[in-house]
Amino acid sequence: MGFFLETLIGGLMAGMLYSLVALGFVLIFKASGVFNFAQGAMVLFAALAMARFAEWIPAWLGLQGSYLGTAAAFVIAGAVMFVVAWLVERLVLRHLVNQEGATLLMATLGIAYVLEGVGASVFGDDIYRINVGMPKEPVFLFEGIFPGGLLINKEDFIAALIAAVLVGLLTLFFQKTTTGRALRAVADDHQAAQSIGIPLNRIWVIVWCVAGLVALVAGVIWGSKLGVQFSLSTVALRALPVVILGGLTSIPGAIIGGLIIGVGEKLSEVYLGPMIGGGIEIWFAYQLALVFLLFRPQGLFGEKIIDRV
C-alpha cells in the first residue's frame, strides 16, 4: 500500500509539470484559436534566459549566493517573455487575423525555430543548470500510518506545490478580474468580444504573456531537476497527449489531463512493466491519447465538436 501511494504521488507530481505545459497550449488556443507549436520552444527559451541571467546578474551586481540575485533573474526572464509575447503579436499574429488554422500553425512553427535559434545565439547552447535553491534530499511522511513512512522527493513536492499555486492564481485572475473576464469573452466568441470593444490585440499579448510566464515556471522547475538543454523544447511533445486527453479548450482539462497522464505513466511502468517489458513511460501517454482520439476526440472536458453548416 505504501509503495502504491508513493508511485501515485510521484506520478501526480510529474503530472503537475505536464499540466503546466499543457496549460500554456490551452490558454493560447482558447483566446486566439492558434495551436501554438512554439510552446516547447518557449519553455526552452524561458529556461535558458533564467539559467543565464541567474549567472550574469549576481556577477554584475555582486550578489553571488544570495536569493536576491535569483529573484532578479526570475523577474528579468519574465520581462524577456513579455517582450517575446509583444513581438509575436506585433510581427506575426496581427498580420494573420482571420487566417486558416493551418496557416497559424505554420506560423507558430516558425516562431519555434526563431526562439530556438535566437535562444542559442544569445544565451549559448551548452547544458546549463538552474539552481533556485530547491532542496534535493528526500523526506519520509506519515511514518505513523505506514511502516517506514512514504518516501517523497522534496524537490518534486515543492515543484508540484508551485505549479498548483500558479494554477490557482491564474484561475482567480480569470474568474475575478475585468481583464480575466475579457479573456474569457474572447475565448468564447471573437466577433462578439470585438463588437463590445474588447481589443483583440491586447488580449493576445496578455495571453502570450501568461503562456510565457507558465513556460518560465515550467522551464525553471524542469531545468532545476534535469538541467537546461535543447531537448527541453520537446517537452511540448510530451504535453500534446495531455491536451488531447483534457480537451483543447478546457483549463481544468489541461490540469486533470496532466495528472492522469503523470499517474498513468508511473503506475503502468511499475505494475505493467514487469509483464510486458519496461519503457512503458515513453509510449503510454501517446497510446492513451490515441484511444481518446478514436472514441472521444473532444477530450474529457472539451466542447463537443460540431461542424457548423
Partner: peptide, 15 residues
C-alpha cells in the same frame, strides 16, 4: 453571440 460559459451578470459586465 453571447459568452455561453458565463452567467448573465458577467456577460453584461463585459459590456
Amino acid at each position: 453571440a453571447l459568452f455561453k460559459g458565463m452567467n448573465v451578470i458577467d456577460n453584461l459586465m463585459t459590456g
